[in-house]
Structures are given as structure tokens and as C-alpha cells.
Design a protein around this nucleic acid. Structure first.
Lengths: 217, 217
DNA sequence: TAGATTGTTAATCGATTAACAATC
DNA sequence: TAGATTGTTAATCGATTAACAATC
């Protein structure tokens, strides 16, 4: 209860993304039967320095025990609280192409507390059906479903050309965060967050690394 | 021909990932009918400063024309050369679950020059079949196919528990770069590159942003 | 107690931005 | 010529690492 109210705005993005990795490793460590870990172990597993692990966590509080390390379950709980995943998030998914369907069936979302409550499409052939047990709606029902289910997050898996206009509809419907799989930059208002995942770009990064044989230290 | 031979090792990762975004925007600008652009325009489209765009490109050479800007097609060619995507890359895909199948049908890979030449699975029911026109093989055929097709890149979409051992088989088979969709950290030798994409982590980042209402400047 | 490990400060390192001469 | 825009240098800003007192 002593955390200043504005720390979040000063936390670098890189720190937040590492936090997710710490959480993932902690879950593995617990599954492997350990109760505690250390900044050294976490760092080694992820290729970071021990100092960085401690510094990153220090942005949010004091979670460790000098001489002991970190209690995994405790740290997991704390990081989840920080990330906002200490509760379940209802999510809507727009676009039922190849990728959209796969995302609908992706187990990893549920495992981390994200629950797809509805899917949306324009293709009349699949509107009204269920895919992976989820109802597929026409986009015109978006607002209603978002409001009724208090949905804040949306996944966009529509073709590039439609991504921006879908994003705008989502914002109109009251969505606060958009995970965009279309390979375009979408523009959203300042009070809305957008994260883009471009699968081809990820392969391109790999191509660069291979071509330039980026030796790891 | 005047580029020093070791610049690549000194280029920050962040620069390389922005390079991919520049390439993507340039392709859109061309599609929209413009022949030239500027560091200011590129930066604005992506939310970066003009200075950053110029600085990033300067790592690799002088591609612009003072007073004019950049010729889009020319810059596209240059960036593709840098990224190694000025040629087609054969790719193998391991794991034919929901996600693997979707990736097999993902058009964006082909569009950027990545061509999936073979898919691999352990499930005997689908080995020998074709999915999206691609033959599905048993992993025991991996090495042979990788060598025959001179494949350097692999996409891994297997369950978490199998990711590390598959990665090792890929390395054994002569793969140089792995795009890993399993939500685990995989360990590869220094001469191999690995890029991880964890879909749940991307949603988690969004959750953090929404919970902490990270206001954009 | 001795050994381990934290949280935090100071030092280092790296990346971004501002500014501007050179160029078209 | 005047206006636009590059490439690059220097200044600023931010992030990482090293070091260590405090703690268990």
C-alpha cells in the first residue's frame, strides 16, 4: 500500500515484457517442484543478468528475501497482480480466417486467464455457427456483446485492409486494448492500447540473424 | 562495397526490428501510389522521430537524397537486402496442431518470401497427407528434407513439452534459425538463432497496459 | 557463524534526440 | 534562389551492470 500511484508510467516497456517472461519461467519452476528461486537462476534461464532481474522487480516493490531468494508462488501472485492477470479477462476475437480459428482454439490464452467469449465475422456462411464452442456473430452485435460481458480486450485477425476500420469499431464499442495480427500499423486513441504481432516480421528478424550470423556472447 | 564487414554485430536489435516496420510501411506507401517518402513521413506513420528513422538507416549506408527524401522502391530493395529477404527462403514447419495448420495457410509468409516446403508431425493419422497443399512428414525425415531443400529456417508449433527436443533435432538437421511458438524458452547453440513468439504473453502485455492505462504521449 | 542473496546506489554503457552543414 | 531533407555529430536521456551494505 506504499507504492506511489504513478510508477507505472515510468516503467520501461522492456521491463514489462521481461516481467511476462519471469512469470512464465516461475510457473515452469513451480511445475518442476521448486518452491523458491533466485535472481541468478531466473536470469540464467532467460539469458539476463541477475542484476537486471532484481532491478526489474524493484520497479514494483520488494518481493524477495535476502539470503533466500524469491518464493515462487508468492512472486507469481505479485507479477500476476502487476500484469492484471490475477483475474480472468473476457476477450472478443474478430476475423475467423485461418489464423482467427487457430487463435480461438489456442489453449495458452485460457491457461493465462484470457477467455474468448465471442467471435465476429462478416462472412454470412459462418455467422450463427459455433467454432471451438464459441458463437460467431455479425460485427453489428459487437457493441452489445462487449457491454454485456464487460469486455476490455480484443484480438484482431482480419485482412490488412479491414484492420483499421475494425479497430475503430472496437474502440467505439468500448474496447480498451487491441491485439492486432494484421500486418499493418493501426491507429487508436490515446486512451486505448494496441499491440501488434506480425508473423512475417518475426521470420524476417530470424532471416536477418541468420544472414548476419549474429553471434551470441 | 565500402561497408565494413562487422557492422552487423554492432547493430542494436531494436534497430533491426524497426527496419522491418519501415519495410512494411514502404510497401504500403508504394501500394498507395507514392514514389518517394521522407524520414518525417515514415516516422509519423510508425510513431518514431524523424531523427530515429535516419539514424537507423545510417547503420547500413546512405540511401536517401538530401532535399528529396527516399525513393521507396530503392529503399525497399536495400532493406530487403539487409534483412536477407531479397531472395526466397524455404522453411519447414513442425507441429500440425491448430496453430501449425493456421501458420501453414498464412499468406503473409509467402508474400514476404518465405515458402513452407514441408510440414512435420508425430501423429501417424496425418503423416503422409497434405495440408494446405503441403506434404506432412514424420520427423524422422527431417534431416533429409532440410538438406535436400537447403532449408535454414524452421517454425516450431509443437506443445511446450516437446519444443526443446524438437529444437535440438532441428539444429542436428542443420537448421540455422528457429521461430518458436511454444510458450517456453528454448536453448540453442551460439551459431543458431531463435526467436520466440508467445501469444498469451502478448495479451498479457495488453492487459498490463489497460490496467495501468499507459497514456501515450 | 559463514554463506547466500536481496534491494539499491553509483558507474558504465548504449540509444535517442536535437541541431546543423551539406545537398538537391 | 528558397525550401526541403538528408547524414552525422554532439548532447541528452535512459537502461544495464557492478558493487556492496543489509539481511536471513
Amino acid at each position: 500500500m506504499t507504492k506511489p500511484p504513478d510508477i507505472e508510467s515510468t516503467v520501461p516497456k522492456a521491463v514489462v515484457s521481461r516481467l511476462s517472461l519471469y512469470l512464465r519461467e516461475l510457473q515452469h519452476i513451480v511445475r518442476d517442484g521448486s518452491d523458491t528461486t533466485s535472481s541468478t537462476q531466473l536470469g540464467q534461464l532467460l539469458g539476463f543478468s541477475d542484476a537486471q532481474v532484481r532491478k526489474d522487480l524493484a520497479y514494483f516493490g520488494q518481493f524477495g528475501y535476502p539470503g533466500i531468494g524469491y518464493k515462487c508462488q508468492e512472486l507469481i501472485t505479485e507479477i500476476k497482480k502487476i500484469m492484471g492477470t490475477n483475474r480472468a479477462w473476457p476477450v472478443v476475437l474478430v476475423g475467423m480466417g485461418n489464423l482467427g480459428r487457430a487463435l480461438l482454439g489456442y489453449k495458452g490464452f485460457e491457461q493465462q486467464g484470457f477467455h474468448v467469449v465471442a467471435a465476429f465475422e462478416v462472412n454470412p456462411k459462418i455467422i450463427g455457427t459455433q467454432i471451438e464452442g464459441i458463437d460467431v456473430y455479425h460485427i453489428r452485435n459487437l457493441r452489445e456483446i462487449v457491454i454485456n460481458n464487460d469486455v476490455k480486450l480484443a484480438i484482431v485477425a482480419v485482412p490488412s485492409g479491414e484492420a483499421q476500420s475494425i479497430a475503430e469499431e472496437l474502440v467505439q464499442a468500448g474496447i480498451d486494448g487491441i491485439l492486432n495480427f494484421a500486418p499493418v500499423t493501426i491507429t487508436v486513441p490515446d486512451n486505448v492500447s494496441a499491440v501488434g504481432v506480425d508473423l512475417a516480421i518475426e521470420l524476417e528478424q530470424l532471416s536477418f540473424a541468420v544472414v548476419n550470423q549474429t553471434q551470441k556472447p
